[in-house]
């Protein structure tokens, strides 16, 4: 205690406080501690060692989920987000139109592009024909000739 010579009064006070605390408990204190320490543990503490069945509902739910995923019939129409589909463009519906345009795969996109080219060509061809024959429909005679030819 050499390092604390200057604090001997405080140390004495602390020791007195400790004495007071140790003496505070009554005479039956040790008996109560002994009884508490040596009494057998409650039975339920041992019963907790038996195997728990709490996992069964969770395992059942997981199994049902797996089977549902494996066996649930899938839609033939490609739906965004499904396996093997690649979303290349999407249009969100506006207020005036209920039509949604979902381009859900590369193949679909190519078909639409090819179709639109053919349609455009047809329109151009019809316009050219009309321009070329416009002068031929000037008289009623021409109309009759066309009618006869049909």
């Amino acid at each position: 205690m050499n390092h604390n010579e200057e604090h001997h009064e405080i140390i004495d006070s602390l020791e007195r406080l400790a004495e007071r605390h140790r003496a505070e408990a009554d005479d039956g204190f040790e008996s109560r501690i002994l009884d508490a320490a040596t009494q057998p543990l409650p039975a339920h503490r041992h019963q907790r060692k038996t195997r728990s069945t709490a996992w069964i509902p969770f395992a059942t739910a997981a199994a049902v989920g797996v089977f549902a995923y494996m066996w649930f019939p899938r839609s033939a129409i490609p739906v965004p987000g499904q396996e093997d589909d690649q979303v290349v463009a999407a249009a969100t519906p506006d207020e005036s139109s209920a039509a949604d345009l979902w381009l859900v795969s590369i193949e679909t996109m190519e078909e639409l592009i090819a179709g639109s080219d053919d349609f455009g060509d047809s329109l151009e061809w019809i316009e050219l024909q009309i321009d070329a024959t416009e002068s031929e429909f000037d008289s009623e005679l021409d109309w009759y000739q066309i009618g006869e030819s049909l």
């Binding site: 400790a18 605390h21 140790r22 003496a23 408990a25 204190f29 040790e30 501690i33 002994l34 320490a37």
Partner: peptide, 11 residues
């Protein structure tokens, strides 16, 4: 053992 240590633990 309890006589030796219980009051010290209590304090």
């Amino acid at each position: 053992l309890i006589g030796l240590y219980s009051r010290r633990v209590y304090a």
